[in-house]
C-alpha cells in the first residue's frame, strides 16, 4: 500500500490526472441537463411518470464506458513508459525496491483510478439528479432505449444496488483497457506509444467484431462487452450473460497485469 501512496503523490501533481475526471464529471452534468430538457421524456411526465434522480447516473454509465477507457489508458499507458522516458524510473529502481513492488504500485494506481473515475462521476451525477428530480423509484423501459415496449418499476433501494453493480462492471471494463495499456507501458519507451497502441487495438477489435468471418471470435474481444453492464438494467437480470462477459473482462485484466509484470521484471532498463 505504501507504493500506492507514493503513486498517488506522483499523479496528484499531474494535470492529466484531473483532465479526465473533469471531462467525465462535465459529461455527467451535461447529461443531467439533457435529461431535464429532453423532449422525448416529456410524454413520460405527461403520463404521470416520476423521473427519479437516479436516471442521471444511470444514463452516465454509457459515456463512462466510452470515455473512461480513453482516460485511464492515458494514465496507465504513461505510468511506466513515461517514467522510463523521463528517467525517473532508473532513479527509483536504483533504490532498494524490487521491480514487483514498483509495478504493484502502478497496478494499485490503475485499479483505484478506474474505480474512482466511475464512482466519483456516478456520485456527482446522482447528486445532480436528486437535485433536479428528487429520489424515488426508477422506471425503466422493458427494452432498453425503446419506450414503446412498456416499463417496469424498480424500487429506489434495488435501483441503487443495480446502479452500483453496473458501476463496478463499467469500472472493470475500464480497468481492462488500463491493464492492456499497462502491459504496453511495461516495455515501450515512449509515453504516448502505449495509449496509442491500446486505442489502435480497440479500433481494430471494433472493426473485427463486425466482420462476418470473425464473428465467432467476437465474444473474446473486449470491445464486444462494451454494454455488459446493461445486464443490470433489464427487468430480469441476465446473470449468465453478465458472468460470461465478466470472465472475458477479467481475462484481459489479468493478462495485461501479469504479462506486463513479467516483461517489466526481466526487462533491461537501458533508457
Amino acid at each position: 500500500m505504501n507504493t500506492l501512496i507514493l503513486e498517488l503523490k506522483k499523479v496528484r501533481a499531474n494535470f492529466r490526472t484531473y483532465f479526465g475526471i473533469i471531462i467525465l464529471w462535465g459529461l455527467g452534468v451535461l447529461i443531467g441537463i439533457n435529461v431535464w430538457y429532453n423532449p422525448s421524456l416529456v410524454p413520460l411526465r405527461q403520463f404521470g411518470f416520476h423521473l427519479s434522480g437516479l436516471y442521471v447516473p444511470g444514463l452516465t454509465l454509457y459515456p463512462l464506458a466510452v470515455v473512461g477507457p480513453v482516460v485511464t489508458v492515458l494514465i496507465a499507458g504513461e505510468s511506466i513508459a513515461g517514467e522510463r522516458i523521463r528517467g525517473t524510473l532508473r532513479m527509483v529502481l536504483s533504490k532498494p525496491v524490487t521491480r514487483q513492488q514498483f509495478y504493484m504500485g502502478k497496478v494499485y494506481l490503475i485499479i483505484v483510478y478506474s474505480f474512482f473515475i466511475v464512482f466519483s462521476t456516478l456520485l456527482v451525477t446522482a447528486v445532480l439528479g436528486l437535485i433536479l428530480f428528487g429520489g424515488g423509484e426508477v422506471i425503466l423501459p422493458n427494452e432498453l432505449s425503446n419506450f414503446s415496449e412498456g416499463f417496469f418499476n424498480v424500487p429506489a433501494e434495488e435501483a441503487l444496488w443495480r446502479l452500483a453493480s453496473s458501476g463496478i462492471a463499467v469500472s472493470l471494463y475500464v480497468l481492462a483497457f488500463a491493464s492492456v495499456a499497462l502491459f504496453f507501458s511495461s516495455f515501450l519507451n515512449h509515453s504516448l506509444a502505449s495509449p496509442v497502441f491500446t486505442l489502435v487495438m480497440t479500433t481494430a477489435f471494433t472493426v473485427l467484431e463486425n466482420l462476418e468471418f470473425f464473428r465467432p471470435f467476437a465474444p473474446y474481444l473486449i470491445t464486444h462487452h462494451f454494454l455488459y453492464w446493461q445486464n443490470f438494467m433489464v427487468h430480469e437480470i441476465d446473470w449468465l450473460g453478465f458472468f460470461s462477459s465478466l470472465g472475458v473482462v477479467m481475462v484481459y485484466i489479468a493478462g495485461g497485469i501479469i504479462g506486463g509484470g513479467l516483461i517489466f521484471r526481466y526487462r533491461d532498463e537501458t533508457d
Binding site: R86, G87, T88, M91
Partner: peptide, 14 residues
C-alpha cells in the same frame, strides 16, 4: 549504496 545513474531525473512538478 546510493547513487546516480546517468543524468539525474526527477518529478518536475514536485
Amino acid at each position: 549504496m546510493g547513487g546516480l545513474v546517468d543524468i539525474p531525473a526527477f518529478y518536475e512538478t514536485l
